[in-house]
Design a protein around this nucleic acid. Structure first.
Length: 425
RNA sequence: GGAGAGAUGGCAGAGCGGUUGAAUGCACCGGUCUUGAAAACCGGCAUGGUUUAACGACCAUCCAGGGUUCGAAUCCCUGUCUCUCCGCCA
């Protein structure tokens, strides 16, 4: 959520910022609601004040044993007027809140303009794409060959966009997960956390998935009004919901491994082959809660932590900055890390690292006490995948395949695979 | 699953339906004292919002949402969570 003060005091600025996202802000309408709000609020508060003083007078008079009938009569008709005024104010504020909740975050100045992913800008590349002198297979073929990835079983057990893994390939996914968690916890200073995979509405509201993006989520049916998490960002970031943190506690750095569940509504026909886009996938997520003046540096740092995993695994990748049209609703700026997939001859997203500044924390009421002002102020939140484990598995399979179909195991993973150096047929 | 108790400021913990946004203690901040520190003493110390150039004034908030009342932290209903006991269970 944007700062309501900013919206009120600098609507032109917000309007301009919204135009970068193709969102139209009707200032005249906003002004009209705002002035109705002001009028209604002043009126309501005056009535409340009046009621309070009279009620107090009744209390005083009664304690002195005086007759209170006259005041009692005068205040009773006040109650009706107050009820009407309160209801009106409530409606107006709801209207205002709806507008506020519909507005995306203001993009950073250095986010390039553009319509979609075509306009994202490559910032840097790392590593060499494998030079194979044989016909490369994609992960679907490799999985079939090794009897380690079974889409039909996933479809039978659940439905489309679900998959089962088996044998060394299932093990490889676990190895990747452990490797990522250990690296972030031990090398990069993150606190390993374990969190629920089902969350309530308040949590989803806090990180911005609700109210706007409910169709992307799986909601469970029955007595519990919970949703499956679409990313660990939701439970992890909500650790600080409603908290006032001490300055010395910051920055908070969390890493968590969770499955993620996405309905992928609106992605029909996209990436139907393989396990690029599944309803359920594993991800290791990095979250940082920082002081406002440190979020930009933390964003760069966190992106570097995600990159470090790919470097350790020896996987070629590039980093792009998302353009205005591709940047998510809550983010100020997002870097995508895209890994090279020989099976597709393309870079594919494997991590998305975003700075939300105070957009999430305003919804979350996540604050810290600034020693300079001694007042609670909003923290900034940053998160990113470190990395999407399922896609990393694909990348390892495709990049480390050999002519005979065997898979070489990257050195960094070997300790997590009981010292094995390759997966043979 | 059954029975009971509870949820109040950063923490602990009071609070007969009436000038209670809330006693008290601790913590914290400022000051006096001290060579310095501690102790002692004095003062300050919730959050959000409206309004104002500002001082200030006002409104809301005692788990959440409804209700009763002129007036609710206090009474009623619903929900959530925590604790104790019994049963069951990985």
């Amino acid at each position: 959520m944007l700062d309501p003060q900013l919206l009120r005091n600098s609507p032109e600025l917000v309007k301009k910022a919204m135009q970068r996202r193709d969102v139209q802000l009707d200032i005249a309408k906003l002004d009209a609601i705002e002035s109705r709000r002001k009028e209604a609020q002043i009126k309501t508060q005056a009535l409340q004040s009046d009621r309070n003083t009279r009620s107090k007078a009744i209390g005083i008079a009664k304690s002195k044993g005086e007759d209170v009938q006259a005041i009692l009569d005068s205040v009773s008709e006040l109650g009706d007027a107050l009820k009407v005024a309160e209801a009106e104010l409530n409606d107006i504020q709801k209207e205002l809140l709806d507008i506020q909740l519909s507005l995306p975050n203001i993009l950073a100045d250095d986010v390039p303009d553009g319509a979609d992913e075509e306009d994202n800008i490559e910032l840097r590349t790392w590593g060499d794409k494998p030079a194979c002198d044989f016909d490369v297979k994609d992960h679907v073929e490799l999985g079939l060959l090794h009897k380690g990835i079974d889409f039909e079983a996933g479809a039978k057990i659940t439905g489309s966009r679900f998959v089962t893994l088996a044998g060394p390939i299932a093990r490889l996914q676990r190895a990747l997960t452990q490797f990522m968690l250990d690296t972030h916890a031990e090398q990069h200073g993150y606190c390993e956390t374990y969190v629920p995979y089902l969350v309530n509405k308040d949590s989803l509201f806090g990180t911005g998935q609700l109210p706007k993006f409910e169709e992307d989520l799986f909601k469970i049916d029955g007595d519990f009004p919970y949703y499956l998490i679409p990313t660990a960002e939701v439970p992890v970031t909500n650790l600080v919901r409603g908290e006032i943190l001490k300055a010395e506690e910051l920055p908070l750095k969390y890493v968590a491994h969770t499955p993620c569940f996405r309905s992928e509504a609106g992605a029909y026909g996209k990436d139907v082959r393989g396990m690029i886009r599944q309803h359920q996938f594993e991800k290791v997520e990095l979250v940082q809660i920082v002081k406002p003046n440190q979020s930009e540096a933390a964003h760069e740092e966190l992106t570097g932590h995600a990159e470090a995993i790919l470097q350790e695994l020896g996987l070629a990748y590039r980093v792009v900055v998302l353009c205005s049209g591709d940047t998510g609703f809550s983010a100020v700026k997002t870097y995508d890390i895209e890994v090279w997939l020989p099976g597709q001859s393309a870079y594919r997203e494997i991590s998305s690292c975003s700075n939300f500044k105070d957009f999430q924390s305003r919804r979350l009421k996540a604050r810290w006490r600034n020693p300079e002002t001694n007042k609670p102020e909003l923290v900034h939140t940053i998160n990113g995948s470190g990395l999407a484990v399922g896609r990393t598995l694909i990348a390892v399979l495709e990049n480390y395949q050999q002519a005979d179909g065997s898979i070489q195991i990257p050195d960094a993973l070997s300790p997590y695979m009981s010292g094995k150096t390759s997966i043979t047929l």
